[in-house]
Design a protein around this nucleic acid. Structure first.
Lengths: 220, 220
DNA sequence: ATCTGAAGATAGCATATACTATCTTTGTGC
DNA sequence: GCACAAAGATAGTATATGCTATCTTCAGAT
């Protein structure tokens, strides 16, 4: 006798209400995003994801063939989608009246908004991208991101005659760093009360734009 | 019979030369730093560390009581030490003749030197600091780093009357970002040939210093 | 020469984890 | 009302992994 009685109703365990596949799917994806974000790919376990989603582990594998695929769906897809959406929202309605300064400031602000909103996702992506070889899918696979940066570089072109891509990429680095640093240092490097997020963000924008402008004048 | 014959000399396995405890210790630490750096805390396995160090797994646990402790010794200790050494080396020999501009530039350059040199270590520290709750020890435990940043903030004070700490921390963020971005994006965001590391580093220094100066003049 | 402590090496344990198999229940379309 | 597909639930399996136990060998002290 290989199999034993299953689900013998000894303990009066209350059975969960039946939920729709859509609800299950989003519950799992949300829990996975959080777990991956908080613990990294190898740190996150399917058991923990299931617990968090209030779903049995078996159900996860009914929706997603493997942990790696779940990771891709939970982290990659949304990130890619959000970057694409963000891209069109950001640049579609730019009026010609805006100065390049204003445009650049808007680009920087919105990039930081986005990154702040998805800092944990970005964090685990960065970790995955840099070190987890087994999870196929890297930052460079995010087509939306690539397009976004290309557009941003073009936007910077009007301001920095010399090396627009360098200027733009520096700005991206600053913004990335702002997000990463807040995760890394929590309120140590920026003690609460010294300066709030808004001030810091504004400072970065000023700093970035003026920094680039200063470098436009050669021989400094 | 619970125990079987151990080490029966059937296969003529060549026995390794005997190595000193010091050598073993450093072999293990070095391998551990690499493995943790490349795979993160949960991604690195003691088996892989042992293989890399050309040591049996059991030997690791003769030197270090646990994986967590090994992590602390391999990542934390050296980082802390290097920051302290770097701190004194960097600022001890500043002549009074140096302008604050030159000092700031030197601070930025050397910070970036250090970070570039230890980018992988920093990366895994970030992972640990941000997400791995089980590994006690976080960025804020690095006393050398704290002292270093305090000194740097003081150095910025002469240049930015308003909010020196914000200016300094922005600079730290830029430098961190430069390192992280190069790990994250490899040669995607900065394609090789467009600008080499030296140029980028110089640009960051200029950019940072001039950006701060621009913001000194209010009402921009 | 011999003793001994530590290095080299093998085997294994307990637990964790990704994933599967199977049973039981339930909402829905007919 | 009933069939049935899919959700809820339980119980695994195979492997990986942190860590231990134990044996064997060897270099240096006595």
């Amino acid at each position: 006798m290989a199999k034993r009685d299953l689900a013998t109703s000894d303990a009066p365990t209350v059975r969960r209400k039946r939920r729709s596949p859509e609800e299950l799917n989003s519950l799992i994806l949300e829990a996975a995003a959080r777990e991956f974000g908080e613990n990294g790919y190898s740190g996150a376990t399917t058991a923990a994801i299931a617990r968090r989603a209030d779903v049995t582990e078996a159900q996860i594998f009914r929706f997603f063939p493997s942990k790696a695929e779940l990771f891709r769906e939970a982290i990659f897809r949304p990130l890619n989608r959000h970057f694409s959406e963000f891209h069109s929202r950001n640049l579609a309605d730019s009026t010609d009246a805006e100065t390049s300064n204003e445009l650049a400031r808007r680009y920087i602000n919105e990039l930081q908004d986005f990154m702040g909103e998805h800092s944990r996702m970005l964090m685990s992506l960065i970790v995955a991208s840099a070190y987890e070889q087994d999870t196929s899918g890297r930052l460079t696979d995010i087509e939306g991101l690539r397009a976004y940066f290309e557009r941003g570089a073009a936007l910077m072109e009007s301001r920095t005659p010399g090396e627009p891509k360098v200027a733009h990429d520096l700005m991206v680095r600053v913004s990335f760093a702002a997000v990463l640093a807040s995760v890394m240092f929590k309120d140590w490097l920026f003690p609460p009360g010294l300066a709030n997020d808004e001030e810091i963000r504004q400072a970065i924008a000023d700093f970035t734009i003026e920094g680039i402008r200063a470098n436009e004048q050669p021989g400094l």
